[in-house]
Computed example of a mutant assay.
Amino acid sequence: MPKDSHGHLIPGVVSPQRQVPASIPRPEYVGKAAPTKHTGGDVYAPDEIALIRESGRIAAQAIQLVGESIRPGVTTEELDRIAHEFLVANEAYPSTLGYRGFPKSLCSSVNEVICHGIPDDTVLDNGDIVNIDITAFKNGFHGDSNYTFIVGEASQEVTDLVARTQEALARGIKAVAPGRQVNVIGRAIEAYAKRFGYGVVRDFTGHGVGAAFHSGLIIPHYDSAPQFDDIIEVGMVFTIEPMLTLGTHEWDMWPDDWTVTTKDKSITAQFEHTLVVTERGAEILTLP
Rank of each mutant, 00 (worst) to 15 (best):
D47G: 03
V162W: 00
R26K: 15
S109K: 05
P25N: 01
A269I: 06
D144Y: 15
Q156V: 09
W254R: 11
T248K: 06
P178H: 09
S108H: 06
G73D: 04
P119G: 13
M253T: 12
A175M: 09
D256W: 00
Q181W: 01
D257P: 02
R53T: 14
S5Y: 14
G199V: 06
T122N: 08
G40S: 10
V123C: 00
F102T: 10
V276T: 14
Y198F: 07
S55H: 13
F271G: 03
V110M: 04
E28T: 13
Y147D: 11
T36N: 15
I118A: 03
V14Y: 06
S155C: 01
V184L: 09
F238I: 00
A92S: 09
T261L: 11
E85F: 14
E78R: 14
I173G: 00
V162H: 00
G199K: 05
I219H: 03
P11V: 01
T122R: 08
A168N: 04
D4A: 02
P2Q: 13
G117D: 03
V74Q: 02
F271N: 10
R26G: 04
H142K: 07
T286E: 06
E250Q: 11
L106N: 04
K174Y: 07
T39D: 13
A225M: 13
A22D: 11
Q270D: 12
T248G: 09
I132A: 08
G12Q: 03
G7A: 08
L161C: 01
P242H: 08
G56R: 05
E48Y: 07
P119E: 12
D144T: 09
E54L: 11
W254D: 13
H142S: 06
E190N: 07
A92C: 01
